[in-house]
Amino acid sequence: MHETLSEFLKGFGEQIVTFKGFACAFALLFVDFCAIAIFCKSYSEKKFCHKKWNRRFEYLALVDENRVIPIENSEILLGRHRSSDIQFPDLSVSRYHAVLTFSDGILLLDDLNSKSGTYVNGKRIKSAVIKINDEIRIGAMIFSIKKIKDGDNGKRKKEA
């Protein structure tokens, strides 16, 4: 291992001391630098996209008795199963109960053939467009979609 490393350094050292080697190493270093700069920029893009996405979603969140969960994906699965995007730990809720999709500024709720059904403002639905403050019931769980401020993201409501 030690010999391999020393051979590597020796070979590299022999090549880099020549003009050709130095020029090539400099060019490669610059490619490296450029790649790192672009990669770092993608982190700025991530932050930028996050803000833009929130604007696009108008800072919407699913609000139930205890939680405020910001909607940050185009497709959100609601159910009892732990792999659901938003989990409702209640036996009246099916494992994969309903799916909430957001497109073109409109929220759509689709029932996934659940046993207890999905209700919007008291009416059982198969698929329905959701408006802000509509009361949604899946099983025994009741929640609504509300506008929130940016600062409230992910925070739990204090229990009364």
């Binding site: 957001f102 497109s103 759509l108 467009v129």
Partner: peptide, 12 residues
């Protein structure tokens, strides 16, 4: 990374 979510849903 730059998706578009347009489904032409019209609210009834």
């Amino acid at each position: 990374q730059s998706p578009v979510f347009v489904r032409n849903i019209v609210a009834k």
